[in-house]
Design a protein around this nucleic acid. Structure first.
Lengths: 105, 105
DNA sequence: CAGTCGTATAACTATGTAGTTATATGCCAG
DNA sequence: CTGGCATATAACTACATAGTTATACGACTG
């Protein structure tokens, strides 16, 4: 892979590399959510949620759907759960305490 | 998952989120390599390679083995290839051109 | 149209980090 | 011990970005 391809792969991983974005994905695994629902669920500002949603959307991970004056986001790629589960399994293997890392439904 | 667990998951993804580190992983998939070999293969400074190796090592992805005055690094976690292949498959699905994203052996 | 709600964006601050240069540390040869 | 080689680290610059506040934009209500 050349540098451009590696940069594109890195961009996808970067989308998963912040706890706030992972928390958004955890909420969205329950189903589509509009922005305000995510704001109240995650307890940060609406501007920040919108910004992080854009990062995930640009990475090709989320779907957008407007409904009236609201916007619903949902997970658009089936790699999300396998990816997160691989990492969670790895982390669970590294510790003796029970399975504290869990991204499954 | 609480914030601490999410942060730990994010840290693993962050290790994969830079092209230089992905290039190191691509070299290491051929087998163990010492630092200088990676430096000449990747064409950056020795200090930078050492720094990125440390990030990968701290994330639990690489193995270190000293041999004389050299240090050999190798891939220490079996999640590396499944993770990268998931992302590569996703990217290949998104374009019509042939499989340009490939992390397999 | 005016007001309100939901979302996106601009501007900013603070922090993290990739990459560099220079230096330190450790190992081996002679 | 002395010199040279391999690696790690410190100090620094440049840049990216998470999060905030304020504001703009668009859609619905009355």
């Amino acid at each position: 892979m050349d540098r451009v391809a590696l940069e594109r792969v890195a961009e996808v991983f970067r989308a998963f590399s912040e706890p706030t974005r992972l928390a958004i994905l955890q909420e969205l695994k329950e189903g589509p959510r509009n922005v305000n629902t995510l704001v109240t669920a995650l307890g940060t500002t609406q501007a920040n949620i919108s910004k992080q949603l854009r990062v995930l959307y640009d990475a090709g991970i989320l779907n957008r759907e407007k409904s009236g004056n609201q916007v619903f986001y949902s997970i658009d790629d089936d790699i999300v759960f396998p990816l997160c589960e691989l990492v969670c399994n790895k982390l669970n293997r590294e510790q003796t305490l029970g399975s504290r890392y869990d991204f499954s439904i």
